[in-house]
Amino acid sequence: MAKITAGIATSHVPAVGAAIDMARTDDDYWKPMFQGYEFSKSWIKTNNPDVAIIVYNDHASYFGMEIMPTFAIGVAESFEVCDEGYGPRPVPSVEGAPELATHLAASLILDDFDLTVLNVLEVDHGLTVPLSLMYGTPDKWPSKVIPLAVNVVMYPQPSGERCLSLGKAIRRAVEEFDEDLNVQVWGTGGMSHQIQGARAGLINLPWDQKFMDDLIDQPEVLQYKPHLEYMREAGSEGVELIMWLIMRGALGDKVDEVHRFNHVPASNTSVGHLILTPKEGDA
């Protein structure tokens, strides 16, 4: 039986990818941020999953406006890295987990989640920056990946309730998979940031920290936070945080906090990072 052993949340700022790719992680500007991931990089060495389900959003990198899925799942053998306008990041392509992915996609559709199934997908910084933060610069990513792309760019985004329920359904589906696999769910994006308009540069660290508290302790309450509140309090791009709810839903009722980190700023963004594990003995 496959099992969800941990959830990871992390911002996925493109400039963080650039800092890694240009070996600037020791610069004064970047060092304090990357230090917050040192624990995680050693933690994952002993807790490496067979498969990471990475919940992320595409940033007009693969999907344009011609076709915009609410939820899309990648079931391919591998996923190439997008050219987001600066040339593709110099990182390995991403290996898929087709058997688990097709099981998962089918299970979720049978549970009335109206997924779009992707046999082809190129992934952008939303997915590759979290890999870089957790794994550094290997020749090959140490885990297989199932990309789960969420529309957070165009209103209406999926509701908080929908995201939390999707996470719960992912948990059930993974546990019904016959092979023994160690599976993690990663929620990416956020925290507070706004990268457009006269209000650009908005950061709300107290709000971000309260969001983390609620995500850990009372996701059932947090799921009802309206999108407008994310946008008002955490900036127009802060609404990416609904993706963390999917990760949280996949961990069961109670969780233990293994690691927690905040840093301001990375480029325009408040960086937040969590490692959570399902509480022992919790169903």
């Binding site: 079931v75 087709p98 097709t102 996609a105 089918a106 199934v117 046999n119």
Partner: peptide
């Protein structure tokens, strides 16, 4: 034609 067949016949 299942999602699994879809991979096989892609």
């Amino acid at each position: 034609f299942t999602i699994e067949k879809g991979r096989e016949g892609f």
